[in-house]
Amino acid sequence: MGTHATVQKSGMVFPRNLSERSWEQIGASLRELVNSSAWWLADWLIYGEVTYGWRRYKEAVERTGLDYQTLRNYAWVARRFEHDRRRDSLSFAHHAEVTRLSPPEQDYWLRKAEQQKWSRNALRRAVRASLAVQSGRAELPDSAGDGGQDATAGAASPAGGRSGSEITTLTIELSAGQLEYCSKAAAAHGLPIDKWVARMLASAERQSA
């Protein structure tokens, strides 16, 4: 066996005498490949939508064996970042964390993440803390974990108050599709997603009263 790893469709075979440095470089390359593939698939889907029409490109996606909903989620993020606004030093997941923000806010937080070398979770916590300060609430808990996306809202107490200890913080875990729907609905009302959710909860409370 040589001194290089061998890539197969079902895995990777490593030689016994592979240096630690080479092993590290392989890991870094795989990381870049995984990160880039989300952007590539997103742009591939968007091109198909624009060029071939919904039915034809959806049939083509099905023939590839790729998961259509996953691609839609990727495309939802990619549409919010023109190529010149995507940062190669950050992961696709970093960009996904700030999609609900305005473009200037997106650029600000991605620049901060790049400068501070934040992980995706560190970026999430920083953005949440900032949103909490803007809305006058304490820092929101990071309870969604690595695998989910969430929208957090401060709901009014039954008496309608929104100050002091009467504020209740809710953390709602959403799928990417649900988050996309809520983000669009919030944008249609000119509201951040947390304030839109709070408004919906208040409306439901009034209707049930």
Rank of each mutant, 00 (worst) to 15 (best):
Q178E: 15
M1S: 15
V77P: 00
T168V: 12
E166Q: 13
T3I: 07
R206W: 01
L71H: 00
H4S: 13
A5E: 10
A202T: 06
T64V: 00
A144C: 11
R87F: 02
K184H: 10
E20N: 07
T168M: 07
S36K: 06
L174A: 02
E205D: 11
W76T: 09
A138P: 07
I167L: 15
H83E: 15
G11N: 04
N121H: 08
A202F: 01
M200I: 07
M1I: 07
E205Q: 13
A28I: 01
Q149R: 14
Y68E: 11
Y68L: 15
S208I: 09
T70I: 03
G2P: 15
M1D: 09
S163N: 10
Q69A: 15
Y181T: 15
D146G: 08
R111E: 08
F81G: 08
P158V: 01
L131W: 08
W196G: 05
E173F: 10
V98S: 05
R79A: 07
L174Y: 04
P158N: 03
A42E: 06
F14N: 02
K112N: 03
R16Y: 06
Q178P: 04
L131G: 14
R111T: 11
E114T: 02
E97Q: 09
V127M: 00
S163F: 13
Q115E: 13
N73S: 15
M200T: 06
E166L: 12
G11S: 03
H4I: 10
E180W: 04
W23F: 14
S19L: 00
A159V: 01
I167M: 13
D43V: 01
R124Y: 00
E49D: 12
S143I: 08
S102F: 01
R80V: 00
R72Y: 01
A122R: 13
A155I: 15
N121F: 02
V197Y: 11
W76I: 01
L140H: 05
L201G: 08
Y108L: 09
Q207S: 09
V127W: 02
R79W: 08
A113K: 05
A78G: 00
R63P: 00
V34P: 01
T152Y: 06
E59D: 14
N17V: 04
I26W: 07
G190A: 03
T70P: 00
L18D: 00
A113C: 06
D142E: 14
G53I: 03
Q106F: 02
D67Q: 09
L170S: 06
D84L: 09
T3A: 09
R80G: 15
W109V: 11
A75R: 04
Y52R: 14
A204Q: 02
T169Y: 02
T99I: 14
A38Q: 12
G177W: 08
T169W: 06
L140E: 11
P103H: 08
K117H: 12
S19T: 15
G161P: 04
H189L: 14
K184G: 06
M1G: 15
V13D: 14
H95P: 01
W76R: 10
A122L: 00
E166R: 12
R120C: 04
A28R: 12
E62G: 06
S208K: 12
K184W: 08
A132L: 03
E32R: 14
W54V: 13
L33C: 11
A185I: 04
Y47F: 09
D142P: 03
W39Q: 04
G154T: 13
L71Q: 01
